[in-house]
């Protein structure tokens, strides 16, 4: 049984069909990326999966448990935790407190949540330890992304969803984050990445799902996607004339 199973999920806003009949699944311990040009419906799909938007129809099953239409906190408790585009940390709270909030989803007292948070810091080397008491809003983008990932990990997810984790980062930072993504898998976490930037996706993914105009264009391994004519066309061909936002 796949970890996450999506069956003909649909969502429209007024007349605009943002996601039309998308189905795919994610196996345990995979790194799957969802890509597509702007307006392909990636963000809408991600919001549908994580409970921020309710689908018009379709099923989402996480670990055999139906989660479509559930609220975000329930999706988190089902083991699926997400991050946000342009890193939404709690800006005025310390890095430690940010991660503590994640840990509080599983324990009731702050002291043990703190210990839990500190143990998660180790995963990031000295990066987060050094900034433990700093307000998260004052960190660099790359470190904010780390804080967000740490906060998510503190919930002990089986599946972590990253929404454009390298947006606005320089190549060195992008490299570090892609190493981090690969490292997440070694910890036994399955990863779903929503990305615009193909180079990152090609490097880290086991499998890539391509969305275009709210539909599943194709899915396959990075080499399969790279060689696919339809994908090239979606990205380059008529993309400019038909990116209906």
């Amino acid at each position: 049984m796949p970890l996450l199973q999506i069956n003909s999920i649909k969502k429209s806003f007024g007349g605009l069909k943002a996601v039309k009949d998308v189905s795919f699944s994610i196996e345990r311990n995979e790194i799957v990326s969802v890509v597509g040009p702007n307006g392909a419906g990636k963000t809408t799909l991600f919001n549908l999966l994580t409970g921020f938007i309710k689908p018009d129809s379709g099923e989402i099953t996480m670990n055999g448990r139906r989660i479509e239409g559930c609220n975000p906190e329930t999706v988190c408790r089902a083991g699926f935790v997400r991050t946000f585009q342009s890193s939404r940390v709690f800006p005025n709270m310390s890095v430690l407190d940010n991660v503590t909030i994640g840990a509080l989803s599983r324990c009731n007292d702050v002291a043990s949540a703190r210990r839990e948070a500190l143990s998660i810091f180790d995963f990031f080397g000295s990066r987060l330890h050094d900034y433990s008491d700093r307000a998260a809003g004052t960190l660099s983008w790359a470190n904010r992304t780390r804080v967000e990932i740490a906060r998510a990990l503190a919930c002990h997810p089986t599946l972590i969803g990253l929404d454009e984790p390298t947006a606005g980062m320089n190549p060195a930072e992008t490299n570090e984050i892609s190493e981090l993504i690969v490292k997440l898998r070694t910890e036994g976490v399955t990863v779903l990445v929503i990305e615009h930037d193909m180079s990152l996706v090609m490097r880290v993914s086991d499998r890539i799902v391509v969305l275009h105009h709210g539909e599943l264009l194709m899915q396959g391994t990075p080499p399969e996607v790279r060689g696919n004519a339809k994908v090239m066309e979606a990205y380059l061909g008529n993309g400019s004339s038909s990116t209906a936002n």
């Binding site: 609220n71 906190e73 939404r88 909030i101 994640g102 509080l104 702050v110 503190a154």
Partner: peptide
């Protein structure tokens, strides 16, 4: 301020969506 409820409220004030995504029952 030192216990769970205070932490959760602070997180909700800072960014409710982010808080809910890590399981805070808003």
């Amino acid at each position: 301020a030192k216990t769970k409820l205070g932490f959760l409220l602070n997180a909700l004030r800072e960014d409710a969506d982010a808080a809910r995504s890590v399981g805070v029952k808003a």
